[in-house]
Amino acid sequence: MAVRMKDVAQSLGVSIVTVSKALKNHPDIAKATRERVMAKIKEVNYRPNLMARSLVTGRSSLVGLIVPDLIHPFFSEIAKSLSSALRKKDFFLLVASSESDAVLEDAEIEHMLAHRLDALVVATTQSTSEKLRKVSENGPPLILLDRDFLDFRSNFLGSNDYKVGELATEHLIAIGRKKIAHIRGPENRVGKSRFEGYQHTLERHGVAIDPRYVIAPLGSVDVDGRRRGETAMKHLLSLKMRPDAVFCFNDMIASGAMMAALDAGLKIPRDLAVIGCGNYHYDELLRVPLSTIDQRIEPLGLRTAKMIFRLVEAEGPIRPQRVILEPELVVRESSRVVK
């Protein structure tokens, strides 16, 4: 049978209120009393009933995070940064993966909401805003992460994805590349914005866009990006007029693309310059260290936590907030100037 707070109080000869305050490190409780309470709690393996506490306080201290893929470095690093920031204020993170499946995402949202969350963060795979709009209207505060909708005004945190495409393409032009390909991302606002940044930068420099150089990989770039990048690069290498540079939607695609190019005997960056997006932890450890656009993942997680605290502590409805972080170019060996 689970040990109750009442049992801890009776064994120490103190009130339930004293035990509760000791657990919260309340200043009313003497240091010696708190130490006795904490020692007893450890001895009897007492665990607070969070559900019961939430019924009294109206808060569960739980935040939900649903992402397309838990293995994807972008989302795993976001989860790590967010969890660390939440823990400092005694909030805890529940994480689930939708596997880039909108139906599974719906099921995960329903499961999360059953935990009486204080806030829900979703990097959605939905094609429309309809279901998330209902969550926003009837559930806890909702924050969209990385991808959002034009027709749904919501709390949102993400990167300037147009700037991602612009920075990457400007860099490749600056190092003298003329035939610049792009391995695209999904048909959502993120993928479209990065493509537009690439497209408009080429146009601004008077570089004609060859439609054969724009590849839309089949399937999910979140779940299976490396293999998608490898397949897309093999297609580009089969062209009679090969590109001399490629901007990849993310670093997972870029690592697969580089693998295919190296296996085909190309030298990077001499024959082919490659740049991705994300600045993941492994980029410097690849066979050829990968140039990338840094999305500033850790600050993104910290800003998400800050938004959660603002929403939870608000006494009433507040206007949705939109936070866009500016990306930064990180140049490594895969796109160095060849002398």
Rank of each mutant, 00 (worst) to 15 (best):
K40M: 14
V330W: 04
V67C: 03
S193A: 12
E326I: 08
G165F: 00
G185V: 08
S97H: 10
F195L: 09
A32N: 05
M1G: 12
I175E: 06
L23C: 02
L12N: 06
M112P: 14
V337N: 06
D294E: 07
R59T: 00
N279A: 11
G265Y: 12
A216H: 08
I175L: 09
R189A: 13
A107K: 15
A39L: 06
V221P: 00
E105P: 03
H111V: 05
D90W: 15
E196K: 06
A264L: 03
L150A: 12
V67K: 02
L239W: 12
Q199H: 15
S129Y: 13
R270N: 10
K178Y: 00
I109N: 11
L236S: 13
E43F: 11
G265C: 13
E196G: 01
R87M: 09
L62N: 10
L113K: 09
V56H: 07
D7G: 09
E43T: 13
N188F: 10
K21A: 03
T18M: 07
A32Y: 05
I41E: 05
A257N: 07
T292F: 02
K31S: 08
E166A: 01
L50G: 02
V323E: 10
S220G: 15
L202W: 14
F249W: 13
V122I: 12
R296F: 10
V56F: 00
L132N: 11
G229A: 14
I180D: 03
T304A: 06
V331T: 04
K267C: 11
Q295I: 07
M38I: 07
P217G: 15
F249A: 14
S127Y: 03
F309A: 12
R310F: 01
L82K: 05
V14E: 10
K89L: 12
L132V: 10
P141D: 08
R189Y: 05
T33Q: 05
G206T: 02
S127F: 08
L117A: 05
A123S: 11
F249V: 15
E35H: 13
R59C: 00
M252A: 04
Y280N: 11
E313C: 13
I175R: 12
G301M: 08
V223I: 07
L94T: 06
A261L: 01
I308E: 15
V274F: 00
E170W: 06
I275V: 06
F92V: 00
M112D: 13
I318V: 14
R189K: 05
V190Q: 00
G165I: 02
H72A: 01
N138P: 09
I183K: 14
S15N: 08
V8T: 14
K42T: 12
L12K: 06
Y213P: 10
L142D: 07
A96Y: 00
N250L: 04
G278K: 00
L239I: 03
A181F: 02
G158H: 05
R133K: 15
R184C: 13
T57S: 15
G158S: 13
D263Q: 07
S54N: 04
A114W: 14
V246K: 11
L132F: 05
Q199T: 01
S83C: 07
H281D: 14
M258F: 03
A114H: 13
F249N: 11
Y198G: 12
S193D: 12
H111I: 04
S335C: 07
D106C: 13
N138V: 12
V56G: 00
M38F: 14
V223P: 08
N45S: 13
F92Q: 02
M233Y: 04
